[in-house]
Each structure stands twice: as C-alpha cells, then as structure tokens.
Design a protein around this nucleic acid. Sequence first.
DNA 1: TTGAAAGCGGTACCAC
DNA 2: GTGGTACCGCTTTCAA
Lengths: 345, 345
Amino acid sequence: MPSPTAVRPAGPPRMSDVARLAGVSKMTVSRVLAGHSVAAETRARVCEAIDQLGYVADAAAGALSSGRSEFVAVLVPSLSSSNFSDTVRGLTDALEPHGLQLLLGDTDYDLEREERLVRSMLRHQPRCIALTGSQHTDATRKVLERSAIPVVEMWDLPTHPIDTAVGFSNVRAARAMVRHLAERGYRRIGFLVGASELDRRGLDRLKGYQAEIKALGLGEPRVVRLGESPITMSHGGPAMAALLERWPDTDAVMCVSDMSAFGAIMECHRRGLAVPADIAVAGFGNFEVATCCHPTITTVSVDAYGIGRRTGEALLAALQARDGGGPTESKSIQIDYTIIPRESA
Amino acid sequence: MPSPTAVRPAGPPRMSDVARLAGVSKMTVSRVLAGHSVAAETRARVCEAIDQLGYVADAAAGALSSGRSEFVAVLVPSLSSSNFSDTVRGLTDALEPHGLQLLLGDTDYDLEREERLVRSMLRHQPRCIALTGSQHTDATRKVLERSAIPVVEMWDLPTHPIDTAVGFSNVRAARAMVRHLAERGYRRIGFLVGASELDRRGLDRLKGYQAEIKALGLGEPRVVRLGESPITMSHGGPAMAALLERWPDTDAVMCVSDMSAFGAIMECHRRGLAVPADIAVAGFGNFEVATCCHPTITTVSVDAYGIGRRTGEALLAALQARDGGGPTESKSIQIDYTIIPRESA
DNA sequence: TTGAAAGCGGTACCAC
DNA sequence: GTGGTACCGCTTTCAA
C-alpha cells in the first residue's frame, strides 16, 4: 500500500526533495549550493532541509547541465615512486582549494597504457590534464588536441610541448653531477640506469652523463643498463656488481636515482668497499633514503612537490584565461635543481 | 557567415553527430558503444563515424541517464607509502578490467579530511567505496550508510565493520613478532612508533607489543613515541637514539614499520653498534628497503597488493549481488601475514 | 530575490 | 535489429 505522495521507489534524496521540504523551488536550492545570493532566511531553511535529508548533489547531473566538470586528469608513471607522489601532492594542494577533483592514474611507464587512460579519462570531460614526460603516442597527442583542454607535461622540458611544460632538463642536471664528481677528482666514473627504453627521464640523464664524460675527456663511458622502470632499491646491487665486474677500477658511480644509489652502496658494504674512500656513489632525486642512509648520499635535488604545485597553478591560469576569453599562452616553466654534496661522493 | 547546417557553436562531437554521419539513430550508436547486438554492417559504419569524428562519449551523461557511474572511490592515508600504493595497484588490477574508474584520494591520516573527501567523492555517485582502517568520524559513517553503496574497510579487521572488511589483526601480528624475538633469546625489547593518535594500525601494533611483553613477563614495556605519521625513514634514527638514552641495555627493537627500522639501523651504524650482535632490529611491512638494506631486516610481511586485490573482488561481488538482487552479505576477509626472519634479528 | 521551462548528452523502454 | 520518446538531476535563461 504505497502512500500517495511517495512515488519514487527509494534512492537518495534529490534537489527537488530538498526544495519541497524547504518550501522553495529547485532553483533556490541550486543557488544556495552555488553560493549565489539568496535571502538569509531562505538560505537557512534550505540548509536545514539539506542537513535533514543528508542531501548530496549529483556531480554528474551538474556537470552535464553546466557543461563543465570539476575533474582534473593526472597521469604519472608510477604512484609508488615518492617523486611522483610528491608531485601529486603538490597538484592536490594547488587544485583542491578550487573545488577541483583529481582523476589519478598511473601509466606504469607504458605509453599504450597512457593512451588508454587518457581516452578513459577524457570520457569524464576533465577541465584540464597533466601528463608526465614528453613522450606520448601519436594517438594520445591527437586525442588531446581534439579535446581542446589545457595540457601540462611535467618533469621534462620538451622542445615541442603539446601546450605547457613544467620541468627541468634531465640532461643538464646529469651533466652537472658529472662535473661535480670530476671536480672532486674522480676520473673513472660509471653510470647505472634501467634497461627499459620507456623511462625517458632516465635516458636523458644517461645522455647527459655521456655528453659530459666526453666533454671532459674522461675516457669511454662506463654504463650498466639493467632492470625495469621504475628503478627501485633492488636495482643498485646487481647493477653495481655488473659495473665492478666489467670495470674494476671504477672510482665513482652515478645512479639514475637515489633508490639505485642506495642499493649500490649496500652492495659496497657487502663487499667490504668503503664509500666514498674506495668508491664514490651519487644518486638523483634527493629521496628520503639519501639523507637517512649511512653514508648520506650526494644527489641532485629536484623539487618534485614544486613541479606538482606549479603545474596546478599553470592549469588554473589556463582555465581562468579560457573563462576570461584571454589567449591560452603556452610556455615552459623551469624548475630548479641543485647538486647536494653529502658523504657518499 | 555561418554555414546553415553548422548550428552548434563548436565543441566536441556528440552522439547525435555520430548518428547523423553513420545514418542511424542515436540509439544504435549507443548500442554499438555498449556492445549490444547490432548488425555487423551497421556497426562498422558507426565505428567509422566514431573514428572519423574522434567521438568520445560523455560519461557524465551516461551516468545520469543510466543511474550508475563507473566510479569506485578509494581512500588511503598516504599515497607515498609503498604499502598503500601497492594496495591501490591491487585495486586497479581488480577493477579496471571491469571498466571501473578509481577515484583516488589520500586522507593524510586525518579523519576530518577523510570525511571531506568521502562527501566530495559521494557527489560523483561512486558504485562502491574502499576506505583504509576502521576509524572514521560519526558523520563519515552516517553519510556512508545513507549512500547505501557497498563499503570495504581495508588493512584492519574491525569488530564492527560498516559493511565488509579486508585486512588482518595488527595486534596479533605485533604479538607474533615479540614472540619471535623472545624465541631468539632477546629479553629487553623496545618499540618505536609515531606519536600521533591517528595511525590506528601503528597503535594496534603497539598494543600487541605491550600485551605480549606482559604475557611473556618481559618486564616494563620500552616504548618510544616520536614523530608524525606516515612514519618514514627519518623516524628511526631519533627514535632509536631516544630509546638508547632511556634504556641503554636494550637488546632488541621492534619498529612500527620497516622505514623506521631502517633509520634505526643506520643510527646504529653511526654509533658503531653492530646489528644484530649488539642490538637486534625488527621492522613491519616487508618493504623493499628491508631486503636491500645491510643487514637485511627481519620483518612482518603483509600482502598489501593482495589487500587491494581482495578488496576489489569483494566490491565486485557486492555489486553483482546487488544487481542480481541477492543479499549483500557483509563479512571480514582475513589476509595472511608472516614473520620473515632475516639478518637484523 | 525567486520561479518556470528548456535542455545538457546520453540510456531505458517500448514499438515497429 | 532498429528507431522514437521520455526522462535521468541539475543549471541556464528569462520572466515575474
């Protein structure tokens, strides 16, 4: 025996329910929610009704109706790398206060997967999107262009960014580290990096290493390529072993990340090699392990959080420019990096 | 001079555009997209039109119309902890093949923030939601109940789960580790943990430590509470220092996580203490650092990925049960943990 | 300051 | 197998 007024089967309350309870129209409820001007008394009644019903506005309906979602799509290669989770935090801090909701995905260093994720996220009509790196499939580029939303590429400074880029030159950062080691008197410098072609930032660091070794006339590069991205702590040990096997007289090792450097140092401990007395080790990224490890690790500090923060700000600026009808000017935003000398090199 | 056919201002193509180009109705396009039965030839024409226009279906419209989104809300305390990012990966692997999209948020170990995020995510009408831990504000519980979607709590086995739980007893796991150390002959066992009241899993481990120390008659507990969650590598050093200051004759230390244990071991290195000869150290979580560190760290291995995976499966089951009209049976799913003896203890 | 009507872009449902 | 129609829940627009 259904009561004559209760027609809807059940389900959560709707805006019309709130309106009825408050004795106003849907529009007034909508205005209260949007923070538009409504008589204080009316507003109070509406708020009370909302509370009483536990009303939660449907974002999908709102997005459909207004033609704008509150999503920002964000793609990083790996969520478990502290690098990228710091970047995500920066993005969150920049965007959340503006009522934007991150739609997060990890590509697992796989460009095909990136493409799938981009497509999937685009279905939700994000206001803008942040990608990591400058390498994307042609299809990804095309679909992004067609979507016509602001795009920021992070962690790199591509020569031809899709739109805006926030990052630094991994090539130059690596060169700076080679110079640092050379200035300390090291001459037989090796480099440990992953074997995968997918980690462009790692490959850029390798390229920088090779270039500077050549520029300084330090002989043949001593490169060990081993393991998959993301490079983790387990990488450094075997890579260091391989390096010492092939070039036993190596006096310094640069690693593609602090994770690898840590593994390398532990391998030295196991072999009874003193760091840096017998062999110096340098990392990249200034991860926490670099400061906690014994010895502490000389590294390149990159402001991962800042990359996220600046990316968020760039996206906001692009959205505002768009709303204001202003020109969407694309640019490259350079993030600083610093060599941090510590005990290991 | 706008052409007479081009009425819409611009914007991305719509389903009606695809339909017109393919010479079919919107419904047929919709069916093609949904994989329903459509004549092969018709389907081909529609697909071609989709390709040609670069059409991307609007998920918000679909969700509104069908009354079901493809979102799964997921809340973890911290994205940068490898524990939780492994869990997220497990969830992704379980849910993505079913076309579900993760809506990810990190609470930063803050229950108020969790409440805000839950509210915010609920606006998107997620099909279900996974939370971390068993502690939530009353408002969070209420709003979840009202939402009437399946809820899974991860990483813990609450006595009164909201709905379903996937986890293990942190109390019992910690007790097991105390027993392990006692069996190895250690008697003056300390415990390092964060000072915050917010990390319930850490506090449960502390509780387990205290209970087992008492049960075994190992004297007064030696507890150092220091630092904020999430506990990172930087925690262990100062905490170890504080412990040795207060109880210099300590012969073994349990840490709330491997991160802390690593920091503690490095502190021992700095002080010239041999691990485990002078002092044993045990961790929790079986993080990568535990296997790479020298000495390798004795720890409690927890299947973080499995928690995510099982949670995803539980959510899928709940959704199916719901669709099938079956009863939504709530339950606790127990995840295994194992003591892994290594060099450090 | 408030309300009524139209419609956002899809899908469910029922005819054909 | 395919098309027409109503409608999901909200915001826009315009009128009162």
